[in-house]
């Protein structure tokens, strides 16, 4: 079991996951749409598959938001 925080909300995971797996689990099908922070540090895209999210970690998905004029 791992208890993590995603965008401020507590989530229970059956086991530790990589950032790439976590993105899939959270229905982020296009990783280009988000920027990921793990405990306040950016995770670079090339490290998504090797970076593990462990018990107690805080993850933030920062989404692209486009509008203004529209």
């Amino acid at each position: 079991m791992a208890t993590i925080t995603i965008n401020g909300e507590t989530k229970e995971l059956a086991k530790s996951l990589t950032v790439a797996e976590l993105l899939v689990k959270n229905d982020v099908s296009q990783p280009d749409m988000v920027s990921v922070q793990l405990n306040g540090e950016f995770v670079y895209k090339e490290n998504y598959k090797t970076t593990e999210v462990k018990d107690g970690d805080e993850v933030d998905f920062l989404y692209f938001m486009g509008g203004g004029s529209f």
Partner: peptide, 17 residues
């Protein structure tokens, strides 16, 4: 760009329409 390296590919992000 510290947050987002480069623009998303067109159509990756829903547009207003």
């Amino acid at each position: 760009r510290c947050l987002f390296n480069a623009p998303p590919p067109p159509n990756a992000v829903p547009t207003c329409s």
